[in-house]
């Protein structure tokens, strides 16, 4: 991991209790994000991408491995220091209706981080809220409104304004589009695109929506059942996904065809993501993989460099490489 990385996640594992056992939600994941860089994380349910997002900003503590922000190991600092560090690390959640305080106005919600960190006088805070509202495409007139008077897209903008209030360096976006309509998804995506240049923001953009991830991200990591299986610069991944799971994800996206005759057949990979309680041995994807071989059922796959900054963990790729 480079020293100038804004965020460095190194060999992080996170487990949760499940009855008498523990399940591994995130398993030996390493990644880094540079200043003002956007890293996309894509995966289906159970891939551990949301857990990883929370680990990245210290909302959860890893069982093993380290999370380092601007050179500071989040696991080694006091809770009070961590709370102060949150000024640089913010998150926007999937459901703004649930994550915003429904009992106070929009303005009060955006003010809250400033109150918590005791920043500015009352007047300064109010001016800041006005600027933030305009920054996210709303107006000061929205300030006195109660959250349930706004649409889902507007609420997500409020949530973004609240996250921006402290001037963060890294913003984790956890499935922030999935509750929104198509047109509103596109609007919010454009807003994020805009903000990263004006606010000098780095994003960890987490979504199951590969198109959205590819649109926004500089680099993309693909997750399956708690593990990273491939990562690459966006252009390289879109042009030539290497891991069979990544390929399946690309295949399963239904784009508008050029005509009825040009439709592609609706065939994808079989099965569903297995439960993390009985994680398949070897490569976790082997139960659904069209290329699965004996070795995939026994040994974890090695990381291979398959292009410039492009890596994938797959036995079948390794076999091709050797052969």
């Amino acid at each position: 991991m480079s020293d100038n990385a804004l965020l460095a996640i190194d060999q992080v594992t996170k487990t949760f209790p499940w009855g008498k056992h523990r399940i591994e939600a995130v398993r030996r994941v390493s990644l880094s994000i540079g200043t003002a860089e956007t890293l996309g994380l894509v995966g289906e349910s159970g891939s551990g991408k949301s857990t990883l997002g929370r680990l990245a900003i210290g909302l959860l503590a890893p069982d093993r491995g380290t999370v380092t922000v601007s050179g500071v190991n989040l696991g080694a600092v006091a809770p009070r220091t961590l709370r102060t560090m949150r000024q640089t690390l913010q998150i926007v959640f999937q459901d703004p209706g649930a994550a915003l305080n429904a009992r106070v106005s929009v303005a009060a919600n955006i003010l809250e981080p400033l109150v918590v960190h005791n920043i500015g006088t009352r007047d300064e805070r109010l001016r800041r809220v006005g600027r933030l509202l305009e920054r996210v495409g709303l107006t000061t007139a929205h300030g006195p409104a109660m959250p349930d008077e706004l649409s889902g897209g507007q609420l997500q903008r409020v949530m973004i304004a609240r996250a921006l209030a402290l001037g963060p360096k890294l913003l984790v976006c956890d499935e922030i589009l999935s509750a929104l309509d198509l047109s509103v998804q596109a609007q919010v995506l454009s807003l994020l695109d805009d903000l990263r240049t004006t606010e000098d923001l780095a994003y960890l953009f987490i979504s199951h929506n590969l198109s959205a991830v590819a649109y926004l991200s500089d680099r993309i990591g693909v997750m399956y059942l708690g593990e990273l299986v491939e990562w690459a610069p966006t252009a390289a991944l879109v042009a030539a996904p290497k891991h069979p799971y990544t390929q399946a994800l690309f295949q399963s996206i239904l784009e508008v065809p050029t005509s009825k005759a040009a439709r592609k057949s609706l065939t994808g990979i079989p099965g569903e993501v297995p439960s993390a309680i009985d994680r398949p041995l070897g490569c976790a994807f082997h139960t659904r993989c069209p290329l699965a071989m004996d070795i995939c059922r026994q040994e974890a796959p090695p990381w291979l460099t398959v292009g410039d900054q492009h890596q994938a963990a797959c036995h079948a790729l390794a076999a091709v490489e050797e052969g």
Binding site: Q185, S211, Y215, V238, E255
Partner: peptide, 16 residues
Amino acid sequence: KGSMIPLNGTHAPIQA
């Protein structure tokens, strides 16, 4: 149609 996010690695503005 314009609001659909394209999957082609390009970064053209979306006409939402």
